[in-house]
Design a protein around this nucleic acid. Structure first.
Lengths: 404, 404
DNA sequence: GGTCTTTTTTAGATGACTTTATAAAGTGTG
DNA sequence: CACACTTTATAAAGTCATCTAAAAAAGACC
């Protein structure tokens, strides 16, 4: 009766089963056995362990299909928590998520640009403790802190190389410094990867096999998941699509970043006569100006719609390229740049895929906005902790981020 | 002492160990234990089984490092064989490879364009038997036939959809038809994927984590390997890069296929005054005309060098895009189009990667011609059999080709 | 020759599975 | 409404890949 036997070594099956319960909602032991290929007997014991750890609850009975009716299992959302921390120069964003990836607490403080690393890290440690206490969450049920940082990183050593405008943070071993202060496991990763795992853990991806989350903040990056596992490539530098070539105005070749990121949209706007005043561009904070344009587009302003449409068209071109290379079945958009204008981008991508995706006759691609658009990276940091601790996976052995 | 424990379920470890012995040449049990994370005791038993199956031989003793000197293990090359068959409209190419992926027999006959499917399949079955007999290879030691076919395929059902110029082969269930005639397991896959596995099994890739084989015949495709496993995406349609956008002449955007494949090179040549005669273009067989240009380039003809250089530049652009998305550490070129002009392409790719690859500071990318350039797909078909039977792997659960 | 190292094998234990059998809790039928 | 039949869940015993611990084999070094 039981099929081929996919099975997995080392109690990894506990993680696999937890993953299934999380993603396939209320589900019976029998259905789990079918989905994994394990026997019902095995499933019984695996589930017993998960219930013993309080990770899973019996939440009711299902309908009978001719015999005894099944006991339905669900994840116990408040059994464990994880913290996500996105460090940026202007703000730090903290989130606390529960086992199903839902936000139970959120906080934003002044960012790492405002203090030297050593000072800032002590502040962070204090803020973490304060936040947990305020939420009434026992540290013992907190699995760790997932830090999401901009710019190049050394995931294995837990070191930030720092983007240009955060020079003081160059080569700061943020993981070891922080883990000495808060006694929690800590892990470091980049924004797009984190956002992708956040989408996955939040359950939005269903059983996608090949997924990409496009993360657009100041720049553009991609996090790629193969069967729910981060695809890291040779050195965790996958999904770099900023330099991809897209057809610019007049069919000239330009790079995606130079044509589609918020800065490009603003520059395009400023090149139009009277547009800066018309759209209320301030010229201080790029993301704010971009959001002004996005808001105008949402309200039906023709110029703004055109500007956003151009950017969305370029992103759509890039997504088609990725879809053809990765044979994607799921795409989501995350990051502050999509918080207002997101639907324009989703529409543009769907339209383009329908026309140009190579395998469009074989299967569709689900395109959606990430649930936590703006906080996607921080939520993803927390989800990375959940996944690493509760449902460890390996793939493309590039090491991935170390957890310490 | 033994490290984390990567271990793998279901006797998959036998395959893993065989893989390591194959790729890391003569190697001792202790080194194998280190490489896999298993204990030396476990390795002893695993190796005993492999030796029992005659897949592995003890081939000598290594140098002592202060104690007993290690027994070195090697794959027994002639223990098993696999057949690769590339079907094309003009020729069918058969190869027989041994356990280390080396060619031990090769044959080329008139292609599938010359007869209706049912007739052709009986011919193929006969030719397979004749070939094995001529080589003195027992069918019992032959693991199967890997068929590589052009155009869209249904890997799971083993059906050819057929390219436009092979209309009679549309929807032919080649796997089931052939497996009834020759009593061997049969598997169907596309050329680029097969070529990639061929490179891997031939040992050229070392321990690459993220590899792409660019296959250029009439069109351009890519086979992608993550840690030696085919990356199949949602529906085995990964690596489609023909429609990727590259900067054409004057910076205008064009698709890779329209700018770089053999047909494009010939068209470019014909657009130049007197070039057709100068280069000896016949206008019958595209690949032959392309090879004429390639030969002229190798002999130093300026125009030919320019034409090939343009094509190579476009391919290089595409490879950079792929390298940035997949964080590649290895690229190889296969297919008849690279058989003569290959070095021009390799050079162009290396140069471009050095300048534009995103993670160039973290690691280099090995770029090389496939060992069996022209026969890469056929050899790869055989290698797919070897991998499927001897070292099964799973990833990106898109099913992969079924073996029956 | 004796002692130390390194490699390989043996023997027993463990744990994640499986198979087989049994209990529990339903549905449907005469 | 008792009985047969299903479906779901657990229990018991066996299998298999792996581990730990310890011994055996084979060479290096003094």
């Amino acid at each position: 009766m039981p099929s081929p036997r996919i099975s997995l070594a080392n109690g990894t099956s506990r993680g696999l089963v937890l993953d299934l319960i999380r993603s396939r909602g209320p589900i019976s032991r029998v259905e789990l056995a079918e989905a994994t290929g394990m026997t019902q007997a095995t499933m019984s014991t695996v589930v017993r362990q998960l219930i013993g750890d309080e990770l899973v609850l019996e939440t009711g009975r299902g309908e009978s299909t001719g015999g005894r009716n099944p006991v339905l299992l669900d994840v116990n959302p408040t059994a464990r928590f994880a913290i996500g921390l996105q460090v940026e120069s202007e703000f730090n964003t903290y989130v606390v998520v529960n086992l199903v990836g839902a936000i139970v607490g959120r906080m934003r403080t002044t960012g790492v640009g405002s203090a030297d690393p050593a000072t800032m890290i002590t502040i962070v440690a204090r803020e973490v403790d304060v936040m947990l206490e305020r939420l009434g969450i026992d540290k013992a049920r907190t699995l760790g802190i997932g830090i999401v940082a901009p710019g190049p990183l050394d995931l294995e050593r837990g070191v930030i190389f720092g983007p240009p405008h955060m020079a003081a943070w160059k080569n700061v071993p943020i993981r070891s410094m922080l883990s000495q202060l808060v006694e929690l496991p800590i892990l470091l990763d980049n924004d797009a990867t984190a956002a992708a795992i956040g989408d996955f853990w939040g359950g939005d991806l269903g059983s996608s096999i090949s997924h990409a989350t496009i993360y657009m903040g100041a720049g553009i990056g991609t996090g790629i998941l193969i069967d729910g596992t981060v695809f890291r490539g040779a050195s965790s530098n996958t999904g770099e699509l900023g330099e991809l070539i897209v057809p610019g105005p007049d069919g000239k070749s330009v790079t995606l970043e130079s044509a589609a990121d918020p800065r490009a949209v603003i520059a395009d706007a400023r090149s139009r006569p009277n547009a800066a005043e018309h759209l209320g561009l301030v010229g201080q904070d790029e993301m704010e100006d971009f959001k002004s344009i996005a808001r105008a587009a949402v309200h039906g302003d023709d110029l703004a719609i055109e500007l956003i449409g151009i950017s969305a068209g370029h992103i759509a071109t890039a997504v088609v390229a990725m879809a053809n290379l990765f044979d994607l079945d799921s795409v989501s958009l995350a990051g502050p740049a999509f918080s207002i204008a997101g639907p324009f981008y989703v529409r543009a991508i769907i339209d383009r895929l329908q026309r140009d995706f190579f395998a469009r006759e074989q299967h569709g691609i689900r395109v959606q906005l990430s649930t936590h658009i703006t906080d996607a990276a921080a939520v993803g940091g927390a989800a990375l902790i959940l996944q690493t601790v509760l449902a460890p996976r390996t793939m493309g052995l590039a090491g991935g981020p170390a957890l310490r």
